[in-house]
Design a protein around this nucleic acid. Structure first.
Length: 216
DNA sequence: TACCAGGTGGGAA
DNA sequence: TTCCCACATGGT
């Protein structure tokens, strides 16, 4: 099956996911950059449910400011308290400080190099690609464990992060909308049905899945 | 109670 | 390179 066909199937099933969610009204009011919210959220969501990330983002809005400027200037211990609900707050606070130092007026996310971004402590491939795609509008496909699990089962495609990323990028047209939505749709489907213990009986893609096989 | 969530870094093999 | 573990809160 062509990836574009898979994308269409998922898009028809779940509709637009509109990743990355950003409070545009807040940023307009505060004069802050909505891209900062994506960058901060990308770090906070590492191995963490989005609900918990939202609590941390709310804390930043309410008791500080949802911006890299604020992250850069606030005391580390205060930052830890604010982001506590997102878990791993000690290392995430340090990582937020590091990424806030990386992005400054001379280093815009629209022009940042992936290699340089990966050198920032706490920014791995997935976080780097998520930042570049969703905050920087850069054509880089994001792979996560949902994508890896789904692709392994559905198309029997597996490999390293870079191999899977290359698989998507070489089989998809270079379209930002598709890159952004496809990743979000794969997550949505994996969360609903292609779980660690899959719900194949309820999955509407089961007839096309190379692992589940056709249902009777 | 146990497991999972929009991962990463460091150390051991 | 690959595997294993620590990192932490909150929901089911």
């Amino acid at each position: 099956m062509r990836l574009k066909r898979l994308f269409s199937l998922l898009y028809d099933l779940y509709g637009p996911q509109n990743w990355w969610p950003v409070d545009r009204q807040y940023h307009q009011l505060k004069g802050t950059d909505p891209r900062d919210e994506i960058i901060i959220g990308a770090v906070l969501t590492q191995n963490t449910s989005w609900k918990n990330v939202e609590r941390a983002l709310e804390n930043l809005k309410r008791e500080g400011e949802l911006s890299l400027n604020f992250v850069r200037s606030v005391e580390l211990e205060v930052l830890k308290e604010l982001i506590k609900p997102s878990g791993f707050y000690n290392q995430k606070a340090t990582r937020l400080k590091a990424i806030s130092e990386f992005f400054n007026p001379t280093q815009r996310v629209q022009e940042a190099s992936r290699e340089e971004l990966l050198k920032v402590k706490g920014i791995g491939k997935e976080t780097a690609d998520a930042i570049l795609l969703y905050a920087g509008d850069r054509l880089t496909f994001v792979i996560d464990k949902y994508t890896q699990r789904f692709m392994k089962r559905f198309l029997k495609v597996e490999g390293s992060y870079e191999e899977l990323k290359e698989f998507f990028e070489s089989n998809l047209e270079p379209d930002l909308f598709i890159y952004k939505e496809f990743h979000a749709l794969l997550d949505e489907h994996a969360k609903r049905y292609c779980r660690s213990i899959p719900l194949c009986e309820e999955c509407s893609l089961r007839n096309l899945c190379l692992s589940a096989g056709p249902s009777s």
